[in-house]
Design a binder for these strands. Structure first.
Length: 407
RNA sequence: GGAGGGGUGCCCGAGUGGUCAAAGGGAGCAGACUGUAAAUCUGCCGGCGCACGCCUACGGAGGUUCGAAACCUCCCCCCUCCA
């Protein structure tokens, strides 16, 4: 389709890295009008406040929103404290426990701290959707529900799959997309962004807005970042995430643990490299002109630097190399004090459990039997070892280090 | 309301009276190897100071039996078809 010259640059920037822009015609109209009338567009993003930790999967969309802000538009950030009670249907079907107002507030606060590492606070509006859902009557809810059919609901990929697989779908889950769409009406969204898994919900917003006499929002979906397991999308509940508030060593190390094949996506989505650039790096790698390890280290360094600093990233890399390439103990270790028993001794397994290096004595024994325990650099083979007073550099497995002082 | 199929360890899933702490896979952990916490290979993988022993565990509560994840009763939950 023909893109007017006046928005060509913005358009190219918006499209970079995005999965879909729907519908393109309306996008162009909105962008042109915005420019001519000098009216910033309202770009909506909703989030679920139930888990307050953002990870770099979230950063994909946030980064995109930041670009809109840099183009002069406004972001409307919705804390879904009402929708959060349902939880976006992802297969877990239980109604989530209602958070107290203080919990929501606390979660939201930490959320903002993280979000504004990426977004421009001055160009961000914040709303809690309980604001309008609290006063919605049952009758209003019926009206909302009446705008959707079961057949359409079942078009949603996730519902369809669960239905086909014979998994339960609870009725209240149908409410989620409708509530999200209702949010769009309330904040008069021009644009709503989300991951590709949000496509259905975003489209529902269009329908509801149209029904409410508003111009429907246009939607933008971003690809989902695959988690550290290389299989599922990054999500906290799967434990395959890199949190943006994690310490430098964690971010660096986790980034180093992705497979080679995943690097391109991480460069593109987590760091925002242009698609072409990310692909070029991978091709160099395949051609043998670049070493995959170096590329991965660069990825890890840049990712760490993004959420900490260049210096912190360099330090993290140094420590990583020391521990993993040179197989040496890190220069600094966390310290922990433990008390000896009344006989002036502490059984090694007990110490490992207390230090949370093992979950049970059995696990500690296994660690020792498998040759995974070193004290002061010496392998420990005796699982009955008793420690006395003193300070010990303990290494459990390849990468857990702790200085334990017994008193 | 009727008929049928299910609920097993962190997850998926096999198991229909003892040989079951329960196959197999995934996850996790360890070791080897390496280019890294990648890939691959090997091992471990409920708890108990480790004991061919005890405890806990196959949706819940009872029961049958020398012995139950398995059989019976009731209950709870999920799915499919019919109404």
């Amino acid at each position: 389709m023909e893109i007017p010259a006046e928005i060509a640059e913005d358009w190219a920037r918006i499209r970079e890295g995005a999965e879909e822009l729907i519908p393109e015609r309306d996008w162009v109209d909105k962008l042109v009008r915005s420019r001519r009338e000098k009216r910033p567009l309202r770009v909506k993003l909703g989030c679920d406040p139930s888990s307050p930790d953002l990870h770099i999967g979230h950063s994909v969309v946030l980064r995109k929103l930041r670009e809109f802000q840099d183009m002069g538009h406004r972001v409307v950030f919705i804390i879904g404290d009402a929708t959060g009670r349902i939880g976006d249907p992802t297969g877990r079907s239980e109604t989530r426990p209602q958070l107290t107002e203080q919990q929501v507030k606390a979660n939201a606060d930490t959320y903002f701290q993280q979000v504004f590492r990426i977004l421009d606070e001055a160009k961000t509006e914040i709303a809690f959707n309980s604001q309008w859902f609290r006063s919605l009557t049952f009758e209003d809810a019926i009206r909302l529900l009446a705008q959707m059919t079961v057949a359409r609901m079942l078009e949603r990929d996730d519902f369809e799959k669960r239905h086909a697989a014979g998994h339960a779908i609870h009725l209240h889950e149908f409410l989620y997309p409708l509530m999200q769409g209702y949010d769009s009406i309330m904040v008069r969204a021009d644009i709503e962004a989300g991951g590709t898994d949000q496509k259905f919900n975003l489209l529902v917003g269009r329908d509801l807005q149209r029904e409410a006499g508003q111009e429907p929002q246009v939607i933008l979906t971003m690809p989902l970042l695959v988690g550290l397991d290389g299989k599922n999308k990054m999500s906290k509940s799967l434990g395959n995430q890199i949190g943006i508030c994690e310490p430098p060593d964690q971010i660096f190390g986790k980034a180093m643990s992705i497979t080679d094949e995943m690097m391109e996506e991480y460069y593109r989505l987590a760091l925002g490299y242009p698609t072409a650039e990310a692909r070029r790096l991978m091709e160099e790698c395949r051609a043998g002109t670049a070493h995959p390890r170096d590329l991965k280290a660069r990825l890890a360094r840049e990712l760490t630097a993004r959420y900490h600093s260049e210096a912190a990233a360099r330090e993290a890399e140094k420590r990583f190399n020391r521990v993993h390439r040179e197989r040496e103990r890190p220069e600094e270790m966390e310290e922990l004090r433990l008390r000896l028993g009344s006989d002036g001794k502490l059984w090694i397994c007990e110490a490992l459990v207390q230090a949370e290096l093992s979950r049970s004595n059995g696990e500690a024994r296994r660690l020792i039997r498998q040759g995974g325990l070193k004290i002061d650099g010496q392998r420990v083979d005796d699982e009955m070892l008793e420690l006395g007073r003193g300070s010990f550099d303990v290494q459990a497995g390849r990468r857990r280090f702790l200085k334990i002082t017994l008193t």
